[in-house]
Each structure stands twice: as C-alpha cells, then as structure tokens.
C-alpha cells in the first residue's frame, strides 16, 4: 500500500515536495530501493533500542574527564562515544547482514512474483520458489547449504576484522 504509484504513502510524501514519485514495485530501478526503505523502517526500532541501552551505559565520568582536558563535543563523540558503543555496532552489523542476506518475508509479501524481471528475488525467495513451487527439493537444498556457507564466511571475516581493531580500555 505504501509504495503504490497512485496513492501510496511514499509518493504522497514526495508530492509534498513537488516530486512525481515512481510506481515503486513495478519498476526495475525502484523495487530494490523500496524493499530497502521498508527493511530500514522495520529494523530501526530494534537497532535504536540497542544503541539507546549502549549510550546509557557509557560512564559519565569519561565525558567529564574529556571536557576537563578540553575536548570538544565532536572529539568526545569521536573518542569516547564511538569506541564505547563499538560492541553494539559490531553486533548490529553482524546480525543485520545475516538477517539481510536471509530476507524473505518482506519480498514474498510485497512482490509475490519476484518483482519486475525478477529484480526483487532474493536467494531465500528463489530457494523457496524452487523448493515449494517447482518441487526441486535437491536443487533448493544445495542452494541452502551454499547460502549457509556464504553467510558463515562473511561472519567469519567480520569477526576477524573486529579482532584486529579490538578496542580495550584499562
């Protein structure tokens, strides 16, 4: 509903600033941005909650000490806030990439046929279609295993990168 070209919510908003919005889900160029906007909107609350908890757990005395040393607001943010919420950032990046590479429900609801020219068919959606529409279970299972290995490799690389830049406070 939100992405409908004639009366959808996004195009109503764009019309307010004088832009004639596209027909999001029918256009090969805009179907992926539409899904991205939707996924961001959906995941924002969760990420924000985690960041809120992380920001509240940064000790006040670090900011006080930095202010006494003459650090500007930007320097405090750069050298205290970002390092202190780094574990949460890492967690969110890892879980978001895993979740994003397994995106299915949004696609299956918004574009049940894979979108224009298959432009919104994700891996999991394609596996699902092969397995339960075409009943090619073996093919689908093989793709699932490869997807699992791929996600594993990406996560492994991320853990490696994180270990190299590990921040520690004494």
């Amino acid at each position: 509903m939100g992405f409908n070209g004639d009366f959808g919510l996004i195009n109503q908003g764009l019309a307010l600033v004088g832009i004639d919005g596209p027909n999001w889900l029918q256009d090969t160029n805009t179907v992926k941005p539409a899904l991205i906007i939707m996924a961001i909107w959906k995941g924002l609350g969760y990420s924000m909650l985690l960041y809120l908890a992380a920001l509240q757990s940064v000790p006040r005395y670090l900011y006080e000490a930095a202010a006494l040393d003459g650090a500007s607001a930007w320097q405090q943010f750069r050298h205290i806030t970002i390092p202190m919420v780094r574990p949460v950032t890492f967690f969110l990046i890892v879980t978001s990439i895993i979740g994003g590479s397994q995106i299915f429900v949004e696609i299956n609801i918004m574009t049940p046929t894979g979108g224009p020219e298959f432009q919104s068919a994700s891996i999991v959606w394609y596996i699902w279609q092969k397995a339960f529409d075409n009943l090619q279970m073996g093919y689908a299972s093989a793709m699932s295993v490869v997807l699992g290995l791929l996600v594993f490799a990406i996560t492994f690389i991320q853990f490696r990168l994180n270990r190299r830049n590990q921040f520690s406070i004494d």
């Binding site: 202010a67 006494l68 040393d69 003459g70 650090a71 500007s72 607001a73 930007w74």
Partner: peptide
C-alpha cells in the same frame, strides 16, 4: 561548564567555536 573550565589550555578552546 566546559567553556568556563577550559580557558587555560588555549589550543583546544580555539577550535571549539570554529567547529560549532
């Protein structure tokens, strides 16, 4: 509070108004 306290070390405070 930061403005009041940080007047002695001059370099960092000089940066502060420029940035903001």
């Amino acid at each position: 509070a930061q403005h009041v306290i940080t007047t002695p070390p001059l370099e960092p405070t000089q940066e502060l108004p420029d940035g903001s």
